[in-house]
Design a protein around this nucleic acid. Structure first.
Lengths: 129, 129
DNA sequence: AACTGTCAACGACGGACGTCGTAGATGCCC
DNA sequence: GGGCATCTACGACGTCCGTCGTTGACAGTT
């Protein structure tokens, strides 16, 4: 439990809901998932997932009330960093610039995105010196 | 089989070997994995993986000789793009700039890497206009 | 021809994952 | 208090993944 393992696909989908809505009940997560997701998962499936995630330390559970409330244990940024680091090591030989190169090659790297990226790069450089 | 599924962790490790060495026998892949990897996988494990990957269309097999020769079916860049796209959608809401932001926040984004990234950005912009 | 080594093929197995059904506890309403 | 809804807990199941042992074919050696 010191460092929770990386979330699986289904677990990550749940974490996204928790990051967006904040601490939520199983029901709220389930309904939000139903709205967003194309796939249709049952209530008990979401419950089971959240129980597993509690076990793994991915979420924290408040059981003071009869209806438990779940909250993401790690921030979205932290989780994104961990996941990207993992993929970077496994598929890009640990090269950040290769990752950026691939990100740029995607259609969704729109004009606004490019401007945003350039701003990030400037900030990063300024902070670095 | 038109579009092969995404490689799993173990499969990706094998693909990395094939990209580096070019078309190779099971033995060569196995030995290369033994050198690089900390983990120690058996010969038949690598064989089985490669057989599965042939089934999935991730690699192509030349059986003209008794000792088969395997080759990656998709380029490294293409695979990297698919994998990054998937993670981008699942964890970053499809935002390329978020991915770049996280990539920059990593220790390994060294000075040379930053210069490389800036060059990529310039090229991309020049090509875009 | 017998032995030895290498190779592909196949089957099995344990674990993780996502799925859900069912049971049991708790709360609410008439 | 009886009945209904809601919630958690538990167990099961099918699938995929990575792992490996075993078997049988083939080739080279003596």
């Amino acid at each position: 439990m010191p460092v929770p393992p990386q979330p699986t696909r289904a677990e990550l989908a749940i974490l996204r809901v928790l990051w967006q809505l904040g601490p939520s009940t199983v029901r709220r997560v389930h309904e939000s998932l139903r709205d967003t997701q194309d796939k249709d998962t049952g209530y008990t499936t979401v419950l089971k997932l959240l129980q597993n995630m509690t076990e793994k330390g991915l979420v924290q559970r408040d059981e003071s009330e009869r209806t438990h409330v779940y909250e993401a244990a790690l921030s979205q940024k932290r989780t994104q960093r961990d996941l990207l680091r993992d993929l970077m090591d496994r598929a890009f030989g640990g090269s950040a610039s290769s990752v950026v190169a691939q990100a740029l090659s995607m259609k969704r790297a729109s004009a606004e995105e490019l401007a945003e990226i350039r701003k990030l790069l400037d900030e990063h450089e300024r902070r670095g010196k």
